[in-house]
């Protein structure tokens, strides 16, 4: 029982930060690499080409 609780607690400790970091990371990549709003596109233009993202 104790072991189970500890395992569940350890998994819970890891789960939230991992999910948050993944979502934050994907959000940043979507913003820098994929959102087509023209200001963002122009600012990130060269990077999108050089990093192999679909750009135009």
């Amino acid at each position: 029982m104790t072991t189970q609780t500890q395992t569940a607690s350890a998994a819970k400790t890891g789960f939230l930060p991992v999910m948050f970091a993944v979502v934050l990371g994907l959000g940043i990549i979507t913003l820098t690499g994929h959102v087509q709003a023209s200001g963002l596109h122009d600012a990130a233009h060269d990077v999108r080409h050089a990093t192999g993202f679909p750009c135009h």
Partner: peptide
């Protein structure tokens, strides 16, 4: 702008990478 956006992009990748490493 290119420098800033490259650093941002790789920080985004690093967040996912480190989360998976953990």
């Amino acid at each position: 702008l290119s420098v800033i956006f490259t650093m941002l992009t790789y920080t985004g990748y690093a967040l996912v990478l480190v989360a998976l490493m953990s």
